[in-house]
Amino acid sequence: MEVSAADPRVAAGIEWPSDWLRATLGFLALRALSAGPSYGYAIISELERHGFGTIKGGTLYPLLTRYETAGLVTTEWRAGEGGPGRKYFALTDQGRSELTRLGGDWERFVETSVQYLDPARSTEGTSA
């Protein structure tokens, strides 16, 4: 599946609008690298396993290339085990800071959205 306007994501029975994934894929990819250096297919599998659907290489690699140019990730080719090498992406300190910042912003955005969509739930949370 590809992140496109006409093709909503499907994950665990839930359809994610493609716009949502387009907006969040950046820091989700940074999050996938937070545990340590990883390569394209492993990042895609990690995101798929956590319910974000199958991200295409044509979506992920341009994003990671831009992050490399911006200094958020570094890359390194490592020899493969009995096969051709793999390109590993690793978070830089700047990338880690960006992940923290974007993660915090996203939490506040989600909280604000939930409060607006369901004021009663928000009031319950305050009174409890």
């Binding site: 297919y41 895609i44 295409k56 690699y61 051709p84 793999r86 390109k87």
Partner: peptide, 28 residues
């Protein structure tokens, strides 16, 4: 090389995984 690496892992066709070559080159 990185495109070949992913295709080797997924077994997909290049067009399927990355879209048209011209668009992919521009997106990078």
């Amino acid at each position: 090389a990185s495109a070949r690496e992913l295709l080797g892992d997924t077994g997909q066709q290049a067009e399927e995984a990355f879209g048209p070559a011209r668009d992919y080159a521009a997106a990078l």
